[in-house]
């Protein structure tokens, strides 16, 4: 098990994840934008387009405008997730001392901040996922649009995040940053990792396996909305400029001076 999850699978995961995403993106690129289906009111410049797509991608503008509860749940979930992913990178990368780059923060304080933030965002992510799951089973329209896989994904993420939180919250199964850093380094350098203490932690192994399965399924699942969102916005949010108004050979003032349309006899005074 240790050999499979810790030593072999990671290389397979990275390969499938990368190729899978390239496959899906290639599939999308193969079909064309045939007609102009830009949504109006028009965006007038590429700056406006960037602002709109940015607002949709990072602030969930449309959810905010049309469904505040969903906005709150979805934004919290994604924001916490983004921080946790970032936290994994910098936490393992700088061993929790990433905040010490900010003047006035000591390495010890940084480690404490890192711990605190990781714990808080882990719990927030779990709560937000629970809320999204609640919507799927309790709100009629959301229930009506859900496939079994939509609910399964949420449960899957809850388990994954839950195991992660257990490692944070319970000292007995806690994982030190150094252990993970050394392990990742060894993987990158294609060195054996089987002797590492890290792989004896069942919680770590479970968490790690769930992550890898997720990454393998990622390119073939709804999780691809991470990229699909931008690809779709690229179609419907573009710059459009209306053709100039103005009619050829029309001089309204001259036409009115000439009294065009007025009956010569002036017979129909009152209607005019």
């Amino acid at each position: 098990m240790k050999l499979l999850i810790g030593q072999i699978l990671p290389y397979i995961t990275v390969t499938l994840f990368t190729l899978g995403i390239l496959y899906r993106l290639g599939r999308w690129a193969g079909a064309r934008i045939v007609h102009n289906i830009t949504l109006s009111p028009w965006l007038k410049s590429n700056t406006e387009v960037a602002i709109r797509i940015g607002a949709e991608a990072f602030l969930f503008r449309n959810l905010f405008r049309f469904d505040l509860a969903l906005w709150a749940g979805a934004l919290l979930m994604h924001f916490a997730l983004l921080n946790i992913l970032g936290g994994h990178v910098v936490g393992f990368g700088f061993l929790g001392e990433q905040f010490a780059f900010i003047p006035g923060i000591s390495p010890e304080l940084s480690k404490e901040m890192s711990d605190l933030l990781g714990t808080v965002f882990g719990i927030l992510l779990f709560v937000a996922l629970l809320y999204l799951l609640y919507r799927r089973v309790a709100l009629t329209p959301v229930k009506q649009v859900s496939n079994p896989s939509d609910i399964l994904w949420l449960v899957y993420l809850l388990v994954l995040v839950g195991v992660g939180n257990i490692m944070r919250l319970f000292h007995a199964v806690h994982v030190e940053y150094e252990m993970v850093r050394d392990y990742i380094l060894a993987l990158i350098l294609f060195q054996p990792v089987m002797h590492m203490e890290l792989l004896d932690n069942v919680f770590f192994l479970t968490h790690y396996l769930l992550v890898q399965v997720l990454l393998i399924l990622f390119p073939f699942s709804k999780l691809m909305h991470l990229f699909g969102m931008f690809a779709e916005r690229w179609i419907v949010n573009r710059v459009y400029k209306d053709p100039a108004p103005g009619l050829p050979n029309v001089d309204v003032a001259a036409a009115r001076r000439a009294g065009i349309g007025l009956p010569s006899g002036g017979a129909a005074e009152e209607g005019v």
């Binding site: 690129a29 934008i33 449309n62 979805a74 329209p141 649009v145 779709e232």
Partner: peptide, 24 residues
């Protein structure tokens, strides 16, 4: 037709079923 229209492919492949469209 699916090989032709990207707008269609993305409608097929990107929806997360958040349900926002229902009440709208």
């Amino acid at each position: 037709i699916r090989k032709k229209f990207r707008s269609f492919v993305l409608a097929m492949e990107s929806c997360t079923k958040c349900g926002q469209c229902a009440e709208n």
